[in-house]
Amino acid sequence: MPELFTISAPPTPALAAAAAATLAPRLLAQAAASDVEGGFPTQEFDWLREAGLLAAPLPTKLNGSGLNEPAHTQELLSALRHIGRGNLAVGRVYEGHANALQLITRFGRPEQLERWAADAVAGHLFGVWNTEAHDGVKLAPLPSGRFRLSGSKTFGSGAGHLTRPLLTAALPDGGWQMLVLPADTQIPEYDARFWRPLGMRASASFRVDFTGLEIGSEELLGEPGDYYHQPGFSGGAIRFAAVQLGGAEAVFDETRRFLRALHRTDDPYQRQRLGQLSILVASGQHWLHAAAELAARPGPDAETLVAHANLVRSAIEDICLRVLPLAERCVGARGLLRPEPFERLHRDLTHYLRQPAPDAALADAGRYALDHPRPAYRLWHD
C-alpha cells in the first residue's frame, strides 16, 4: 500500500489538465527505470497523488475536479493524452482509475459514493478488471448475507497496487454484477507469470484469482447488467484513445529529437516524413477535440455517442499504426537500439494498440452510417 496523501484543494479541470502536462516530462524521464517486467510505476503515481489527479475525476462536491463530467471531457482527454505521452503504462492505469470513478459516480448509492470518493481523495488507486480468465469470476450469495468470490480475471492492470479494483462477476442467475473490492484487506492471489509482454511491462497486468474472498452487500455497485449500459460502456473508448495518441506524440517528439541530435534536419526526405507525421498527430488531436465537443453538447443519443466513439478509437488506432513505421524510417536501425527511448516507446504503443474488438467497433460505426439517412455534414452533428 503506497503512502497516502490528503488533497485539501483539488485543482479545477483546466488546472488538472495543466498538471498532467507539467508531469509528462518527469514521467518520460522516469519511464526507462520503471520499464521492468512485473514492475509498477509507484513513484509516478505518488506524483499524480500529490498533483490531485487521483481525486480529479470525482465531482467537485466530493473534493474532485469534475474531470469525468461531460462538460469537462476536453480537459479529461487532455490529461490522459499528456500522461500517455509521459508513460503509456501510467496512462493505462490512470485511465482505468478514471473509468472506475465514473462508474461509481453513475451507479453508486450516496453512501457508497461518499465512501469511495473519500478513498480516492486519500490516495487509493482504483481500476477496472473485466477480462475473464478461463475459469471466470463468480459471485455466490451466502446465508450470512455476504458474498463469496471464485475464479479469475486476466489483464488486471496495476495488480498488487490497486487497492480498490472494480470488477464484474457472474451471479448464479447469469447476471453480471459490479463490485469494488477492498484489495488491501481482501487480498487476491496475483500471478505475475501471466504478464510476459512485448510492451507495457510496468502496467503489472497480471492474472488475478479471487477464489475464497468474501465481500458484503456494501461492496456491490449498481444492479446486474449496469456495467454494459450505453453509451458509457463503448463510449469510454475515447479515453484509451487519448492515452494512445499521447504515445504517438511521444514517438513524434523522440523522432524529432533523434534527428536533431544527428543533424539530419536538412535532409529533404526526413522533412517529408516529419510533415506526414505532423499531419497524423494533428489529425488525432482533432479527433479528440471532436469527441470532447460531442460529449459536452446536450442532445446526442447513446447510439450516436457510441458510433462516434468507435470512429475515434478506429481513427486513432490507424493514426498510431501509421506513425510507427514512418518514425522507424526516420530513426533507422540505430534508433531502435536500447537505451534509445524510441525502442521502449515503440514496444509500449504497439502493445497498447491491441484493444479488444477493433473490427466490431469499426463495423458498428459503419452500421450507424448505413442506418441513418442524414447527409454526411449532419451525420454526427445535428
Rank of each mutant, 00 (worst) to 15 (best):
D35S: 01
V36T: 07
V36K: 05
E37C: 04
E37Q: 06
E37W: 01
G38P: 09
G38N: 08
G39R: 03
G39Y: 04
G39V: 00
T42E: 08
Q43M: 00
Q43N: 02
E44F: 03
E44K: 01
E44D: 07
E44V: 00
E44L: 03
D46N: 10
W47A: 00
W47M: 01
L48F: 15
R49D: 13
G52T: 01
L53G: 07
L58G: 11
L58Y: 08
P59L: 06
T60P: 09
T60G: 12
K61R: 14
L62H: 11
L62W: 12
N63E: 13
N63R: 15
G66D: 15
L67M: 11
N68E: 09
A71F: 09
A71D: 14
H72G: 12
T73G: 06
T73Q: 14
L77Y: 08
L77K: 07
S78T: 15
S78I: 07
A79Q: 03
A79N: 04
R81E: 08
H82T: 08
H82K: 11
I83Q: 02
R85C: 13
R85W: 07
G86D: 01
L88Y: 05
L88P: 12
L88H: 06
A89D: 09
V90I: 11
V90W: 03
V93L: 05
E95Q: 14
G96T: 04
G96M: 02
G96C: 04
H97N: 07
H97Q: 05
A98G: 12
N99I: 04
N99D: 13
L103S: 09
L103N: 11
L103K: 12
I104T: 12
I104L: 14
R106A: 13
F107V: 08
P110L: 15
E111L: 09
L113R: 14
E114V: 09
R115N: 13
R115V: 09
W116F: 13
A117C: 10
A118P: 05
A120C: 10
A120D: 07
A120W: 09
A120E: 10
V121D: 03
A122D: 13
A122H: 08
H124I: 03
H124C: 06
H124A: 04
L125F: 06
V128L: 01
V128P: 01
W129T: 08
N130V: 14
T131E: 11
H134D: 06
V137S: 03
V137C: 01
V137D: 01
K138C: 03
A140L: 15
A140S: 11
A140C: 12
P141K: 10
P143D: 15
S144W: 00
F147Y: 15
S150Y: 03
S150C: 07
S150Q: 11
G151W: 03
K153R: 12
K153D: 02
K153I: 05
T154H: 07
F155H: 10
F155I: 06
G156D: 01
G156K: 02
L162D: 04
L162M: 01
L162H: 01
T163V: 10
L166T: 08
L166G: 05
L166P: 08
L166N: 05
